[in-house]
Design a binder for these strands. Structure first.
Lengths: 339, 339
DNA sequence: TCCTACTGTGTGCACGTTCACACAACCGTA
DNA sequence: TACGGTTGTGTGAACGTGCACACAGTAGGA
């Protein structure tokens, strides 16, 4: 296997030689310390002259600090292609890390092969901490991260074995209960739910909140269980509900994408929204305002989630002892036209 | 500023001591070489015993290879929130790099501050190469990458100063021409375009293709110029076109998101699609099948673009001399219901 | 004059890894 | 017996950086 040429690059030694000083003085120019004006000038000239850039690998090795934090995205297929929130979470995290002069590097885990490689990457000293998004309870990477004892934070409900790792999320149970209650308060009698991702806490919690809101009126036959938070699942779920209960007049969809699909199925069945059926979603993603009619939904503060998770990691990096029970951000209900 | 505890981790020295051998032998177990069965067994036992993981920073420093490739996303706001393609491109690149046992780390550039920090990261030896997506011609990071002489590849049309950097893209001019021609062939007389992102080559090229297809029939007043590839721009652009030419009967939208917005504006104006107006989009993103009616559009092979760009970088990493004029992938036209 | 404080500079070492080299057994053959 | 090849192991150096330390010169005060 042919290796490429080493691509020789300037080091502190080279600029030291060029400026006629020692490596130590160069280091002091770069990192602060007592340096005479003429030495500083000569060194800075030499630096721009040879186009010197510090070698991060060496610096990291010595300092045990890489100034980088990983953003680990699990199940990226559904995440990147169906869930518009992930982008906002990333941007929020990036902004917060950027302010603290840290680099965010995002890692995509889509296969077992990836899990192993990412674990190697995380443990290898390239990053100081990790933000983990959308972890299924059973994902092996979680145990890896817990074992590494690397400063970390979860976005979303924490998996059970992560009691040592802080998290930030939203109150899925409470939010689902609130919006369902509001839907019921608008006079709807037969309210169903299209529940998704019941293998994840977010999915389970939204279902629980729905049950709580309806209390004794809850009818299990009015819950359609679909695998994903996506549009296609919404179409299928709504068709199923209409088949089971033609008199249905209210639907809580577990995500905006699902709600959009439900609207399509309702249109197909000749029902008007919100006239015949009231529909509410979850996320307040870009889906919500694209639909006809626009969706009433639960606002998920995606950017803030990313930003808060980044803070959690940064605080641990600063040596602070972070309380581990996590934080839930507010989720205001946005009432539009679909219910 | 308090630094966190060094978090002492096992090194080759530790396992060497635990197994009663020298560091060299441990290295040989890890990287291959002549090792006796009993030494190997003792070392492997010690490794799992202390939970040893190699330090990548040290390895990178010595080897001058990090086995990581950066995925640089410029303008992430519009990219992550409006353009569903970026996710697919990322996944394609990740899959290809994963197969070659490389780690993809994606970097988000959203401000000047980011540019500088990412430049430092790229040049600091943490990555062996870079894939750059959606580069505006004028983005400063491009010059940085060119100057670094790091193996790189662009997704999309290459900016002018990147003649030393290979790229993979699609034939925006040809694709736009083809789908416009097909729209014209279906009997439409007054065909307009909602053109977007004219500060990017993709945007300019799609407009050029549109002009080419219409030839002498091209009417500049039927081009609405909007800033972004997003839904809102589509709504505004279509309203503008309807105002300028009420008799318009065909529209080429520069993206599916724009086309979706155009459908909304047309619905609002009481026009039927495809009855009164035929609409075609570009990208074949998830938008295309969410719309009512579903969009006729140009399929953009997003996953393949990512994968191909990764190959370009990997080939350079393997020492291969890559031809620099780039490659254009096929973009079949998908004809659905909107025209 | 001597001591202390401050400014400025050079040298050695360590971070954890890989690799080249030296060397030591062992085996088969001349 | 002596030689060369194979298998197996240990040692030293180097990758590029930052920091502790040593040291030199100057200035001010006792």
């Amino acid at each position: 296997m042919s290796r490429p040429k080493p691509q020789k690059r300037a080091t502190v030694h080279d600029i030291a030689a060029a400026a006629g000083v020692s490596r130590g003085t160069v280091s002091r120019v770069l990192n602060g310390g007592y340096v005479s004006a003429e030495a500083r000038a000569a060194i800075e000239a030499a630096i721009t002259d040879v186009g010197y850039v510090p070698n991060n690998a060496a610096r990291t090795l010595k300092m045990r600090r890489s100034q980088a934090v990983a953003f680990v995205a699990l199940e990226p297929h559904s995440l990147f292609l169906d869930d518009p929130n992930i982008g906002a979470i990333m941007l929020g995290a990036n902004a917060a890390l950027s302010l603290a002069d840290h680099q965010m590097v995002s890692l995509v885990v889509e296969s077992a092969r990836d899990t192993e490689r990412v674990a190697r990457y995380l443990s290898g000293g390239f990053v100081d901490g990790a933000i983990v998004v959308s972890a299924r309870t059973r994902d092996p990477i979680i145990k890896v991260i817990a074992d590494l004892r690397i400063p970390a934070a979860f976005v979303g409900h924490p998996p059970e074995l992560s009691d040592s790792i802080p998290f930030v999320g939203i109150d899925n149970v409470g939010s689902a209960r609130s919006i369902t209650a509001r839907l019921a308060a608008s006079g709807r009698r037969r309210i169903g739910m299209i529940a998704a991702a019941l293998d994840r806490d977010s999915g389970l919690d939204r279902l629980t909140g729905f049950k709580n809101a309806l209390g004794t009126e809850f009818d299990p036959s009015l819950v359609a269980d679909v695998p994903h938070y996506d549009y296609g699942s919404g179409v299928k779920g709504m068709r199923l509900l209409l088949e089971r209960e033609p008199a249905i007049d209210g639907v809580f969809a577990a995500s905006d994408a699902i709600a959009a699909g439900a609207l399509e199925a309702l249109r197909e069945a000749g029902r008007s929204v919100p006239g015949d059926v009231g529909v509410v979603g979850f996320d307040d993603s870009t889906w919500a305002v694209r639909c006809q009619p626009q969706l009433s939904t639960v606002h998920q503060p995606a950017k803030e989630l990313g930003s808060f998770a980044a803070q959690l990691v940064l605080r641990q990096l600063a040596g602070e002892q972070v309380e581990h029970h996590g934080e839930l951000l507010d989720t205001p209900i946005i009432w539009r036209d679909s219910a």
